[in-house]
Design a protein around this nucleic acid. Sequence first.
DNA 1: CCGGCAGACGCAATTTCTTCGCATTAGACT
DNA 2: AGTCTAATGCGAAGAAATTGCGTCTGCCGG
Lengths: 192, 192
Amino acid sequence: MSARATTRPGGRSARVQQSVHQAVRDLEAEVGRDALTVPLIAARAGVTPSTVYRRWGDLRELLSDVAVERLRPDAPPADHGSLRADLEAWTVQFAEEMSSTAGRTYIRDALLGDPGQGNAGRCSDYAAEQLKAIGVRAAGRGEAVPELETLLDVVVAPLMYRILFRPSELSQAYAGRLVAAALGRAGSPSDT
Amino acid sequence: MSARATTRPGGRSARVQQSVHQAVRDLEAEVGRDALTVPLIAARAGVTPSTVYRRWGDLRELLSDVAVERLRPDAPPADHGSLRADLEAWTVQFAEEMSSTAGRTYIRDALLGDPGQGNAGRCSDYAAEQLKAIGVRAAGRGEAVPELETLLDVVVAPLMYRILFRPSELSQAYAGRLVAAALGRAGSPSDT
DNA sequence: CCGGCAGACGCAATTTCTTCGCATTAGACT
DNA sequence: AGTCTAATGCGAAGAAATTGCGTCTGCCGG
């Protein structure tokens, strides 16, 4: 499932998916996430509930798809002139977005309704792409760049762990320390 | 919510909670987790569905409570004679348990139905307690012991990140590298 | 030891959600 | 243009969620 790239961009399936996703976003803002139901979303989207059940299986999977869309970065990471500055800026922004009430909800939704783990993997891929872009740019400047896996282990994973399991232990200073730790070491615990 | 320590151990509320939890565990083994419903659980537990809804709110919160119970370590970490050996053994066992199909399901359930983030925090506390016990024992031997926060950042967080977001990237060798990384550094990115 | 009190539970009706079969339609392909 | 596949709409039947009300359990003061 996880309806994606169905027929063509102009086809009916694509229109239905768009209007359903849009209905989820609209209703989430209007009535709150906890009040969302499949019949409610279907009515707003102008389709019948059975269509939603057939395409997405249940409400959780639909919310998971929408959440992943919202977690997709909308722009490449900003260029601040150095690897350290780029990493710090990206990390702080990432931490702020993900630790917000909305961000945590999206992460949890993305993780929850996810039979094949596809959506969760996509979340990680988004972060990896951004970090890779920062790394390529830094390499172009001649800077030494940590392994991508190292950054995921040392920066992203601790952030996400706190966001999910220890939301009170997260601060901007902590995010900064993670970046410092990542840049302070050349090798990597994960050189797979 | 999150019914806990209601009246007395012998009270009726406690009996209801126990029988409901037991019903969840039994039915999970018999019919599979995806087939669980509140009416089904209530019938097995010998209570009415409305009781379950009133005490736990919905199925997700009930499953969250049961999942946290299952994630609670049943014994202190084994003693292998040295900090490194204890850490490696604990980490490998932790990774195996948590990355199994059942373990991932419990983690996801614990995270999902968790309004106040109380259950997620408890999961982290369990790991922290085990690590602390290993640390205290090592300190008693005169070994230098990393900060607890460092272990959470360097060992637990990367493991959990892979379990949740990149399940295919997890191996026993990776768990070993994480321990090596944790013991190879004295300081900490998180000396809060 | 007895009676009152607060909270939890059982019961049952109502509302809402979920599932399914069947007919119809949109879009693709020749 | 004609046909073929797949997705959608519709409606009914079944299951689950929610709620009000009466009852009972277990606790506490008299």
